[in-house]
Design a protein around this nucleic acid. Sequence first.
DNA 1: TGCGAGCTTTCCGTAGTATGGAAAGGTATT
DNA 2: AATACCTTTCCATACTACGGAAAGCTCGCA
Lengths: 255, 255
Amino acid sequence: MAAQPVESDAVGKALRLLVLLGEHPDGVGVSRLARDAGYPVSTTHRLLTSLQRDGFVRSDRESRRYGLGLRLFELGQRVSQARGFAGVALPVMQRVTAQTGEPTLMSVLDGPHQLYVHHVQGPHQIRVIGEPGKHGPLHCTAMGKCLIAFAPAEVREQLLESLALEPLGPNTITDRARFREEVARVRDQGYAVSDEEHESGIRAVGVPVVGPQGIVLASLSTPAPAYRMPMDELTAFLPCLVDAARELAVLLPTP
Amino acid sequence: MAAQPVESDAVGKALRLLVLLGEHPDGVGVSRLARDAGYPVSTTHRLLTSLQRDGFVRSDRESRRYGLGLRLFELGQRVSQARGFAGVALPVMQRVTAQTGEPTLMSVLDGPHQLYVHHVQGPHQIRVIGEPGKHGPLHCTAMGKCLIAFAPAEVREQLLESLALEPLGPNTITDRARFREEVARVRDQGYAVSDEEHESGIRAVGVPVVGPQGIVLASLSTPAPAYRMPMDELTAFLPCLVDAARELAVLLPTP
DNA sequence: TGCGAGCTTTCCGTAGTATGGAAAGGTATT
DNA sequence: AATACCTTTCCATACTACGGAAAGCTCGCA
């Protein structure tokens, strides 16, 4: 968890501290943080003071521990609002869950990962896979494959060449040529499935939300445990997901 | 919207840019942002480049406009998780709304304001007052008065002395002595009401969430339009709100 | 087509701020 | 009482951030 790319500018160092702080929900001390970041303690302390002055960091005066501040919550909500994660997407996703009886997930492309932005719980009490704000792999999930397949050509090519095809489930596609074919098929058929590619015992079907300019804005998926959901039952949810995606395509702001 | 307190350090300047960017959901150009912030254009541009490198800012290559990046969403969700806004509070609040048939709001103290962190819509289709991530006044709302009344003594005193008692509704308390009495009463009776103090036509009742150490963690409220909700009907929701607050008192992390 | 206004981006010598080792001041543990 | 480890502050120096200026860009207009 050490700092590899040594940021030379003060702003970069401060931002890295924020990211590191995000990994400590219960707060950390200055020296621990300095060790993690690879900065001198005094530098770390000074940067934290600056971050705190503007509400990006808060410190408990008692325990001398630092954590993320409310300003980040505020700005995070702004992003959620501006990108339509909160107001617009939620009702549409709830409708999908009402029809499928399963959870509905939404994610967007964020560099070489997907970022889960929202989920709606289903009536079944199952563990949720994608917590909002967490990152997940692109190469072995239904949503991830959609995001690649419908990304702008240069981005798609770049991802196809550089993604690490790490095996995470029993059926993960690890061969680059086969993966390229898979993405092409997803692009052709307009949806993707993941049959225990991400995790043993989990299946999912996903669709892209393709905006007016033809670029992918987000993707939606329905996951379900493999033991009670054969693949053809899962693909039966496709019309419903496609409807929702088409609706979101015009509702979501085009970035 | 110009820069009053001239930040002298680079980090402070960068953070201010983030806050300013938050006011432009659809993106903004460098020179406009530089004007708003009061920085030279070149400085602004360099800072934006740093912010973008770490995902705190994103720019549309086409339109040359900058906006808040996904990293802020990610970190905002971490805050939401760490403070229990998302996982813990939501079900409790939904239960309150199920019982009252009205929306339920939650806010926390953030300097001289309250920060709305969550709301649950009621069945009635009414305009929501507190959008999550937005700030609201302390002196003329039920939740705000609870946050003051149950804050640590020094904080309470500081707020009582310095808050601007701006009249925002027909019944806003603008006299400092009377306001001090009002806060004392709230502290005695354990809840607060706001009868068109914040906005004409809106009533609310609110309770504090008082943590194990006796400090206020958050506050909950039930707002309703005045025309169909007499004050005594609103206070009838108090047992339900108090129950919820007591439950949250042990569930929310003590900061 | 050429011009000008206003934008974004890059450059680079200098000014001045960030740097970090060291010391001071805490707090818990032995 | 002594030790260890932490947080916070200090300050002379080095080096990074600064910002004016210039280059490169797009657009609108004559």
